[in-house]
Simulated scan of single mutants.
Amino acid sequence: MTTDGAGGTGNEDHVSTVASLSRRVIGSFGTIVGRVSSLNMPPALARWVAGVDVATAAGSAAVDVPDHATTLLLRSDKRELIVMGPRTRAAYHVAAPGHSCVRVRMRPGRAQALLGRPLRDLADRALPLRELPGLDVDQLAADPVAALEEALADWPEPPERLEEAAHLLVGTTVATAAARLHISERRLHTLFTDGTGLSPKHFARIDRVRTVLAADAGRWSDIAATAGYYDQSHMTAEFRHFMGVPPAAFTAGRRPAATPCTA
């Protein structure tokens, strides 16, 4: 039997109930927080947005897991719109109970079109937005889906190439993805850094970690294979890099200490 480096066993048969909680939330944002209400999206909005939810802090420890998406966030009490770039490491924090926010997780390439600028310098940053043309902040707080539908109704939909590339990277190498798209690896790198704020390899690494977090209960070796790792030890090393602890420790609740959220 091997160990995961934090007191857990690397060959445990089942992921704990903590992973089940993670799985319910990871599909949209990957935040384990007090209360999260995911909103249904009409097809027209789904072309732009990967998920919309309203999260309310419960005063207990929360985990923001790594995310390769760019997110628009509105703090309900401040009516301040913020753009959050890709998150390359997990964040463990405690927010004051009762604070809520609307979060809009954008599909690959869509945030670049909305902001009118490349995202290459947005990773691990949160920047205030004075305004987003056509988006009413008060309406976003009251009815996020309706506000986004109205704001995006007249926007021309951006090309699908980046999202197609993102899907290819889930199960193949950067070189193979570039070849299937009939572009050079350099061009693919530029496409990703401008459109997501991450290199193709970094994007794929985060996607694999999110796959582990969203996995159904099973053997770690099977989860590693499904997520696209070489083996279980590769998965454990990568998970520790992004989450701060190995997978068995995380699912058992042995995590880095949470710090107060001051945002």
Rank of each mutant, 00 (worst) to 15 (best):
R208P: 00
A55H: 05
L162C: 05
C261F: 01
R205A: 12
A165D: 08
S20N: 04
P43G: 14
F250Y: 15
T211M: 14
L122N: 10
R210N: 00
P159L: 01
D207L: 13
A126L: 11
A96T: 11
N40L: 08
V54G: 02
F29D: 01
G51M: 11
V36M: 02
I82N: 07
V209M: 15
E160R: 15
A151F: 07
D138C: 14
A55P: 03
T172V: 06
R103Y: 01
H234M: 06
D77K: 11
M1H: 01
A6N: 13
I82S: 09
T193C: 01
V54N: 06
A69P: 01
M235G: 00
F203P: 02
W220H: 08
T56H: 04
P247G: 02
A95D: 14
T88G: 02
K201P: 00
A113C: 09
T88N: 03
A257P: 00
L73Q: 09
L148Y: 14
V102L: 09
Q139M: 14
R180T: 13
T173Y: 12
L169S: 06
V245N: 04
V18L: 07
E238M: 09
L72F: 15
N40I: 03
D154C: 10
A166W: 04
A146N: 09
V209F: 06
T56W: 04
S38A: 08
L127C: 09
F29V: 13
L198I: 03
A50F: 07
D154V: 12
A46L: 09
E157W: 00
V54I: 10
H182N: 08
F242M: 05
G34F: 01
T9W: 07
P66G: 01
H99T: 15
T70P: 04
P200Y: 04
A227I: 05
Y229V: 07
R120L: 01
F239I: 01
P159T: 03
L162G: 01
M106H: 10
R89C: 06
V49S: 14
G195K: 09
R120E: 11
R105C: 05
R125H: 11
T251C: 04
M106P: 03
E131L: 00
A175D: 14
A96W: 10
E131V: 03
E80H: 11
L73A: 02
R130K: 08
H189C: 05
V170Y: 02
A111E: 03
H68N: 00
M1L: 05
R186V: 10
S184H: 13
G134F: 11
H182F: 13
R24S: 11
Q232Y: 11
A179R: 15
P86F: 04
E149M: 14
V137W: 09
T172R: 07
H189N: 09
G59D: 02
M106E: 11
H14E: 12
A153L: 14
P256R: 05
G51L: 07
R205F: 08
M1A: 05
N40P: 07
S100A: 13
T236Y: 02
D138L: 13
E149D: 13
D231H: 11
E80L: 15
R130H: 06
V15D: 06
S221M: 08
G27E: 12
R23Q: 12
A215F: 10
A111T: 12
A123N: 06
A227L: 06
Y230C: 03
P159I: 00
H182L: 14
P128W: 14
T211F: 12
L115R: 08
I32F: 13
A252M: 05
A151Q: 00
I82L: 07
T196V: 03
